[in-house]
Amino acid sequence: MLIQGSCHCGNIRYELDWTPNPVEIPARACSCSFCVKHGGVWTSCPTGLLTVLYGDSRRVNKYHFGTKTADFHVCATCGVAPVVTSEIDGKIYAVVSVNAMDNVDSSMLKRGIISFDGEDVDVRLQRRARGWIANVRIHSAA
């Protein structure tokens, strides 16, 4: 299944080739303060291929906080963060916002809340390496 998503103005877009086709898509609402304030609900397909395209990379801000192990790709024009990446041992892993999906029927989403409180950095990075999208490509048109 090819899932497409974008920020509100379309400057940050993504295509996630979810393989094999999902019966349902896990939608995890993170309980950290940033995600709570921004309505962050994320998903990943460890066997998928994610392509991220910036229309204008100068209008993409990367925000990180706390452990500084994840970058929220925030559009400077509309303020939406459709993608989060984490570099682990020189490799980029990612999750995508289900709220930024353009072509997925909401009935496919299996929503839940998740908390990472108390998780140390090593455990966090190991979890991401296992569960986040491992095949990530980021391109800029300008």
Rank of each mutant, 00 (worst) to 15 (best):
G66A: 14
D71W: 04
V104D: 12
E87S: 02
I3F: 09
G39Q: 05
A76S: 14
D120Q: 09
A76M: 08
E24R: 10
I138H: 05
R59H: 04
M101V: 04
V36L: 13
R59Y: 00
S115V: 07
R58S: 14
C30Y: 04
G39F: 05
V41W: 04
C9N: 03
I25N: 07
G118V: 11
W42N: 04
E119F: 11
Y93R: 02
H38L: 11
R124Q: 14
G118I: 14
Y93F: 12
A134H: 01
D56M: 03
A142K: 06
A129G: 15
Q4F: 04
L50G: 04
R13S: 10
L50W: 03
R127Q: 12
S6Y: 00
M101I: 04
S33T: 15
I92R: 06
C7I: 07
G10A: 04
D120P: 09
H64Q: 15
A142F: 13
V80W: 01
N11Q: 03
S57D: 05
T69G: 10
T51R: 10
G55Y: 03
A76C: 05
I114N: 08
V98I: 06
L16A: 07
K110A: 01
C7S: 03
T51W: 02
S31I: 01
I114C: 01
A100F: 04
V23T: 13
T67E: 13
N11Y: 05
S31G: 00
L109V: 02
H139I: 15
S107Q: 12
D56W: 04
R111G: 07
H8D: 00
V52D: 05
A29T: 11
K68P: 05
V96F: 05
M1S: 12
V23M: 09
T69P: 10
S44R: 02
P82S: 03
N21R: 10
V104M: 10
W18Q: 01
E15F: 02
I92M: 07
D17Y: 03
H64A: 15
G112F: 10
V136T: 07
T43I: 02
P26E: 09
C78L: 00
I133R: 06
D122T: 09
A100M: 02
V98E: 09
W42I: 08
D105P: 15
Y54P: 06
K91M: 06
L49G: 00
H139T: 13
V83Q: 04
T47I: 01
I12L: 07
D56Y: 06
G48L: 01
V74W: 08
I92N: 02
C7M: 02
S97C: 08
V96G: 00
Y14L: 01
V123I: 15
T43A: 06
E15Y: 03
R128S: 14
F34K: 06
G55V: 02
T69D: 13
V104S: 11
C45M: 03
M108K: 14
L125K: 13
Q126N: 15
S106C: 05
R111Q: 09
